[in-house]
Design a binder for these strands. Structure first.
Lengths: 249, 249
DNA sequence: TCTTGACCCTGACGCAACGTGAGGGTGTAG
DNA sequence: CTACACCCTCACGTTGCGTCAGGGTCAAGA
């Protein structure tokens, strides 16, 4: 009526070493030992292992799992809700990364020459539109912004492009200031407003993500650095400062 | 015209220690040193750091990054495509986890008593339907299965429930066999077909996810273990074996 | 000129969650 | 009696840094 390590390992799909480890850190110590010192797991041990693996799969650390399982008064719902948040943010992050990879792939495959005016070309293509729709397609803000954007004429677009260039040059001129200098923040805010229209009322998180992209994606950094070396990094810092400020309000 | 460690660290948003580390493992060694032995980073170093951080953000290991950056003949597109796949599977995994957390939260908040017939109740509620729609709502298989499911009468549902119970009992009776025993695999296949109808033609990945859920979620394990202790684990193994077999074909 | 205080350096240990031997005992089937 | 499949306990390796410890460097102010 007892299981050996190997049996338990095969049943649960973990390694023997893992069970040894769990024993060593006291998260799952078999209640019995054979005369020869062999670990003998009971059915109760198996159940506990199930719980351990469940929480491990959810991404909890072993230390946390130990307290969760040992302290019955522990608020599991609280822990699970907190963990859900964590998972959601991870998912968002991964979606951003996939977007970034797609963008880089597109630029690698589509040839490497990009004119200066095409700086924001990447934001315009179907890929980003698709991603934006996936993420915020269900919101009212998306619909409204979409309609606004569709009403733009070619002249309007050109105008917007010029505004972008102007703002970027403003920021380049302010690159000696602190990233949270009021003038810098104001320029970033103008950029945010502009992108809001094109990007369908993007939330702060996305705007911040775009700021990060500037630093990560050669398409942007190259162009930024033509304006002024190090500008991409500065812009990202400014975007972060701006987001923090807005969020803090 | 050089940057100190601190300056670079603040610019790029990493720690000084990180830069030391990158120097130590040879991924980013500043070209110059001051007479006192201080690291002096050039603008080219900053650019390289940008690349490093870009790939790091994408989840590449430092070892990989080193080869990517040092070997210009390295196929970045290949690497990026492979990495995209990895990210997608991670995203799927996280979505499954969120679903599992939601299910557990629901069961914790909705009271803990579940009748034996309600074993698959969890698969029936709006939450799972919502998730299924989010994930596969755009596929033709979803639509077809959905229509089929909507045409079922109450009697049909009862019938399906009974079939489920029967299959589970079959599997319980086969729990002494190997998880990849043909009889076991056949029973699992029948379960898959059954769930296909209720679950809108779920792909293998989801079916496998359900198998995992059996082991992780107390709602299922409790009921399984009433039929036979350890059955949940066995069922999961069988599901994995089945999925591997089908996938291998 | 001396002293702060903010920098810089190089080791070197610590962390999470195990993987991977090394070296040696146990148990059972042929 | 001998394989061979298990079991045990150390104990070091892995990844990407965090965190001291112990000790130089440099610019500014008293």
């Amino acid at each position: 009526m007892g299981y050996t390590v190997k049996m338990v390992a095969d049943l649960a799909g973990v390694s023997v070493r893992t069970l040894h480890h769990y024993d060593a850190i006291g998260i799952l110590s078999p209640q019995e030992r054979s005369p020869a010192g062999y670990r003998v797991y009971s059915h109760a041990d198996l159940e506990r292992l199930q719980q351990v693996l469940f929480f491990r799969e959810l991404g909890f650390g072993l230390r946390e799992i130990k307290t969760i399982l040992s302290d019955p008064s522990f608020d599991r719902r609280q822990a699970l809700r907190g963990h859900r948040e964590l998972l959601c943010s991870r998912r968002e992050r991964i979606e951003r990364l996939i977007g970034a990879v797609d963008g880089t792939l597109a630029s690698l495959e589509g040839g490497s020459e990009l004119s200066e005016e095409a700086m924001f070309e990447g934001f315009d293509n179907a890929e980003y539109e698709e991603e934006a729709r996936r993420k915020w397609g269900h919101t009212a803000a998306y619909k409204e912004s979409r309609e606004r954007a569709e009403a733009y004429s070619q002249d309007d677009w050109n105008d917007i492009m010029q505004q972008q260039q102007t703002i970027l040059r403003d920021i380049a001129g302010l690159a000696d200031r602190s990233p949270d200098d009021p003038d810098v923040l104001d320029a970033v805010r103008r950029m945010h407003n502009l992108i809001n229209d094109r990007f369908y009322a993007c939330p702060l998180a996305m705007f911040r993500g775009l700021g990060d992209l500037m630093v990560e994606d050669p398409r942007f950094t190259d162009t930024f650095d033509k304006l002024r070396p190090g500008l991409a990094l500065f812009y990202r810092q400014a975007v972060h400062a701006y987001c923090d400020q807005v969020q803090g309000q």
